[in-house]
Design a protein around this nucleic acid. Structure first.
Lengths: 156, 156
DNA sequence: TATTGTTATACTCTATAACTATA
DNA sequence: TATAGTTATAGAGTATAACAATA
């Protein structure tokens, strides 16, 4: 009779949808010749930000950013620009090519997400529900997979 | 006017929700003293299956299963049982303790998923929409994170 | 002294390849 | 010869720690 926890199935569905979404993400990203972390990073660079800020956005340790940006810079998608105001800082700026790639990437991520199986109305509802789940935390961390981003270890 | 791709925001929401879900998953699993792959494996063992079958369910390479099951067996959650019908095969059977842990794990995964922010009615709708997205593929791969499970490489 | 970015190193998750026992 | 499981190894994605330059 428990009305409290009716969501056995819902959790399963979530796992399944996430698997779909992840597979779609991986193949799209590979198609663009990007590594997953590079793709996540690119998606954060609409406006120029420092490497430190990028690390914050992505929930990565700052040390991890160096290699990711190295790759993006070599491919000519991003430029490191010294900040005159603080010479320790490097601002990350998308090149024209970088902007193109981000745009194409986002476009491809939208398509074929299986979300296409939904009607426009369904998607509207979905948007409303997901927004409710995410809550008003706009800083809601972007998705990255791999090991836990950071789990506070119980110092039992 | 493009009515074709209205889902910029929806994709973002999905990323965010998945990040939430993933964090919840990681901390829950760690709380149970399991590694993520162990948790995924446990969740597949309602019925006894062979290691090979488990690999199939999880989308892991079979070689990866050995270590995972080693850990579960050491913790007394799973037993390897030789199959009399085919002596190469090892059937994986949950112990009583294992059954308890799976139950607790699933319970905790249901709770605090942020899905709780939804009303029962919302959840019902969500279930319907997600089912639509997943389609009738019941073998929809369980979620596992880390590198792409397998991306068919274009033999250009 | 504190902070940005870098380097070096290590750990986790997963795959591939080579092996064994059995079929 | 093919298949189930194991072992050894390698690679990707992270983190932590130590360091240089700047603040």
């Amino acid at each position: 009779m428990r009305a409290a926890e009716p969501d056995e199935e819902l959790v399963g569905l979530f796992f399944a949808v996430m698997a779909r979404f992840r597979d779609h993400f991986f193949s799209t990203v590979e198609d663009e010749g990007l590594t997953p972390p590079q793709a996540h990073a690119l998606r954060q660079l609409a406006e120029p930000i420092s490497q430190r800020e990028l690390a914050g956005c992505l929930g990565y340790d700052a040390s991890h950013i160096t290699g990711i940006v190295d790759g993006l810079e070599e491919r000519g998608l991003v430029q490191r620009r010294g900040d005159p105001a603080d010479r320790r800082v490097k601002q990350l700026v998308l090149t024209d090519e970088g902007r193109k790639v981000v745009h194409r990437l986002n476009q491809r991520l939208r398509r074929g997400t299986a979300l296409e199986g939904l009607t426009a109305e369904d998607r509207r509802i979905m948007r409303r529900l997901l927004a409710k789940v995410v809550g008003d935390d706009p800083a809601a961390v972007p998705w990255s997979m791999g090991s836990p981003r950071r789990i506070e270890r119980r110092t039992s």
